[in-house]
């Protein structure tokens, strides 16, 4: 078992990053279109989900914060399930990458059930950075892609596509007073790096 693992790692290490890109930009864009097609018309719930989530997280009561944490956990879980389920068809690494959404989803679920939940606090350090990231993930990112020629069918929405969900999650965590939130920010940050590298390689191919 250990030998097989070592050999597998050695096999993969034999490749350069660009060799590992198994699909074209066209196929990746089709993946996002198919994601939206399969979800239709549920994507209209995406703005409601985020507005409700932020409103609850700004509330005064613990139950509101817990519900907010539950909604963010749900959004991350939806991406892990729907997006990475499709992505696994064209990328062997997809199940591993899905962990970058499953891990914070589970942590937030735990906070929703037994913890303090997700409370946003204007006094926390990083509030405005969080606001910018949240706005970027929810509005600027999808609009910039549409302005860049992306079809509406392939629009990236919070709770469906990984990029806006990861960026908005980073923003919400920066705006929150969750203790040791830095640890929770590692997985979505790692996804942003992976996604950036993927697009860099796709566009360079």
């Amino acid at each position: 078992m250990a030998d097989t693992l070592v050999t597998t790692l050695a096999t993969w290490l034999n490749y350069r990053p660009r060799d590992l890109l198994m699909f074209s930009a066209e196929t990746y864009l089709r993946l996002l279109e198919r994601l939206n097609q399969a979800a239709w018309p549920a994507q209209w719930l995406s703005p409601l989900l985020i507005v409700g989530l932020v409103a609850l997280a700004l509330g005064r009561h613990r139950w509101q914060h817990r519900l907010a944490a539950g909604l963010l956990s749900l959004a991350l879980a939806l991406v892990a399930w729907r997006f990475f389920g499709l992505y696994a068809e064209i990328n062997f690494a997809a199940p591993w990458l899905a962990a970058l959404f499953v891990i914070p989803s589970l942590a937030l679920a735990a906070m929703a059930i037994v913890g303090p939940g997700l409370a946003l606090d204007r006094r926390v350090r990083g509030w405005w950075s969080g606001v910018v990231l949240l706005a970027w993930g929810l509005v600027l990112h999808p609009l910039a892609l549409l302005a860049g020629g992306r079809s509406a069918a392939g629009a990236e929405l919070f709770g469906l596509a990984p990029d806006p969900t990861a960026i908005a999650t980073l923003g919400l965590l920066l705006m929150s007073r969750i203790p040791r939130r830095g640890w929770l920010m590692i997985p979505p940050l790692a996804w942003c790096v992976v996604s950036g590298l993927t697009w860099w390689l796709l566009l360079a191919a």
Binding site: M22, F23, S24, T27, R30, E89, I90, A205
Partner: peptide, 13 residues
């Protein structure tokens, strides 16, 4: 068929 035929279950592709 490297990259070009890796289109998953997409019926159009």
């Amino acid at each position: 068929t490297w990259i070009t035929f890796n289109v998953g279950s997409d019926p159009r592709a």
